[in-house]
Amino acid sequence: MVQRGSKVRILRPESYWFQDVGTVASVDQSGIKYPVIVRFEKVNYSGINTNNFAEDELVEVEA
Rank of each mutant, 00 (worst) to 15 (best):
E62D: 12
Q3S: 11
G31D: 12
I48Y: 10
G47Q: 04
K7G: 03
S46M: 15
Q29L: 13
R39C: 14
I10F: 01
V38Q: 00
V2P: 10
Y34S: 05
G22P: 02
V24C: 07
Q19G: 14
A63P: 13
P13V: 14
P13G: 04
F53I: 01
G47K: 03
E55L: 15
F53C: 06
G31V: 08
V2Q: 04
N44H: 12
R39Q: 13
T23Y: 08
I32R: 08
N51G: 15
V27I: 14
V59D: 09
E14F: 04
V59N: 06
Q3H: 11
V24G: 03
V27F: 10
V59M: 13
R39H: 11
S26P: 02
R12G: 04
K7R: 13
R39Y: 12
V21C: 08
R4C: 13
S15M: 04
V36H: 01
E14S: 14
E60D: 06
G47W: 03
K42V: 07
D28Q: 08
V38T: 00
Q19A: 08
S30Q: 08
R39G: 04
Q19Y: 08
E60G: 08
V61Y: 06
G5V: 02
E55D: 07
Y34E: 05
Y34H: 09
V61K: 02
V8E: 02
V21I: 13
I32N: 11
K42C: 13
E41W: 05
P13N: 06
K42L: 06
R12H: 04
V27Y: 10
R12Q: 07
E62C: 14
I32P: 06
Q3F: 00
E60P: 13
N51V: 11
M1N: 13
A25C: 15
L58A: 01
I48E: 15
F53H: 01
L58H: 01
K42G: 06
I48G: 09
I10D: 02
Q3Y: 00
L58P: 01
I32W: 03
Y34I: 01
I32L: 10
V59W: 08
F40K: 03
V2C: 14
L11A: 04
Q29P: 12
T50L: 09
T23N: 04
V36K: 00
A63H: 12
T23E: 11
Q29G: 11
D28V: 08
V27G: 02
N51K: 05
T50S: 10
I37N: 12
E14A: 07
A63F: 12
G31L: 11
L58Y: 04
P35C: 13
N52M: 09
P35S: 09
V59F: 10
G5S: 02
S6V: 09
Y34V: 03
R4M: 12
S30P: 05
V61I: 12
T23D: 03
K42Q: 09
L11C: 11
V61M: 07
D28T: 06
V21S: 01
T50H: 11
P13A: 12
V27P: 01
W17C: 06
D28Y: 01
S30F: 06
F53N: 03
V61C: 08
R39T: 13
Y16K: 04
V21W: 04
G31K: 09
R9W: 00
I10A: 01
G5N: 05
R4K: 13
S15Y: 03
E62V: 11
D20E: 13
V2A: 05
R9Y: 00
I37P: 00
K7E: 04
T50C: 15
G31Q: 12
K33Y: 06
A25D: 14
K33E: 11
Y16A: 04
S30E: 05
N51C: 15
E60L: 15
F53D: 01
P35Y: 09
E62K: 11
Q3L: 07
E62S: 12
V61E: 06
I48S: 14
D28N: 09
V61L: 10
V38C: 05
L11I: 09
T23K: 03
E41V: 08
N49V: 06
R39F: 12
S26K: 11
G22T: 03
D28P: 04
D56W: 15
N52W: 10
G5E: 03
Y16E: 10
L11Y: 02
F40P: 01
W17R: 00
V43C: 14
T23W: 09
N51W: 15
I37M: 14
G22A: 01
R12L: 07
N52Y: 10
N44V: 05
S6P: 03
E57P: 04
F18S: 04
D20A: 09
Y16I: 05
T50I: 12
Y34P: 03
E14Y: 09
F40Y: 00
E62H: 12
A63Q: 13
R12N: 11
E60N: 10
A25E: 15
A63M: 12
M1I: 11
S15C: 10
F53Q: 01
A25V: 15
E60M: 14
V59L: 12
G5Q: 02
A63L: 11
L11R: 03
S15E: 05
R12A: 09
Q19I: 08
N52K: 07
R4F: 05
P35E: 08
V2I: 15
D20T: 09
G5A: 02
Q19D: 11
A54R: 12
F40H: 01
Y34C: 11
A54C: 09
Y16P: 08
N44A: 05
S26A: 13
P13S: 09
E55P: 14
E62A: 11
R9Q: 07
